[in-house]
Amino acid sequence: MVFKEFMQSLTKEGVEGEIIKTIFVSLITSFIVLGVFYFFRLKYIDNFIPKYGFYLFFAILSYALVLPSVRQVRAYREFSCMSGMMVGMTIGMIAGFLSGFYVGATNGMFWGSVFGMTVGIFFGAWNGKCCGIMGVMEGIMAGFMGGLMGAMTAIMMFNDNLKAAGVIVFIISTFIMIGLKFMIYKETRGVERKHRDGEFFVIFWSFVLTIITIWLSVFGPRSVLLQ
C-alpha cells in the first residue's frame, strides 16, 4: 500500500516528484555531452562505438540512476542512524560498483578500481553524512568495496559474456536504487523538506561524471593487458 503511494508520489509535486525529472535532466545532459564529443572528436577514433559505446551508454544510465537518490537525500538532510547508514552504503556501493565496472571494462582493473572507488567513496560519504559519522564510514567502506568489486568483476568476465553481465548488473542496481528511493520516502513521510537543489545540481554532476568517464575510457591510462 505504501509502495503504491510512493509510485503515485512520483507524479506529484515534492521531493519524490522530482525523481523522474532528475533522471530525464541527467540523461539529456550526459547524452548531449557525449553527442558533442562524438561529433567533434570521438567519431574519428577507430571502432569507437563497438569498443566504448556500450560501456559509456551504461555508465551514463548509471549516473542517471544514482543522482536522483543523491538529490532526494539532500532534500531531507537528516536521517536516523539506521536509515543514514543504509543510504551511505547503498549509494556508495552502487555508484562505486557501476562506475568501476564500466571503466574497468575499458581500462583494466587498476584504473577501473581507482575511478570506481573515487566515485563510490565520494558519493557514499557525502550522502552518508545525513546521519553523522556512522553514515560517512559506511559510505566510505561501501564505495571502497564497490569500486574494487566492479572493476574486478568486469576484468574477470572479459572473455565470458561481459556485455550481458553489464546489463544484468545494471538491472539489479536499478531495483536496489528503486528500493532505496522507496525507503527514503517511507522514512520521511510527514517530514518537511529542508533543502532544494535546482536542476543545475543535476546538470553539473552529470556533466562532470560523463566528461571524466569519456576521457578516462577513451584517452585515459589503461592496464598493460588492454593496450
Binding site: 557525449l34 562505438i49 551508454f57
Partner: peptide, 8 residues
C-alpha cells in the same frame, strides 16, 4: 546508436 555490436 551506441549499442551497435562488435567484438572488443
Amino acid at each position: 546508436f551506441f549499442l551497435k555490436s562488435g567484438d572488443g
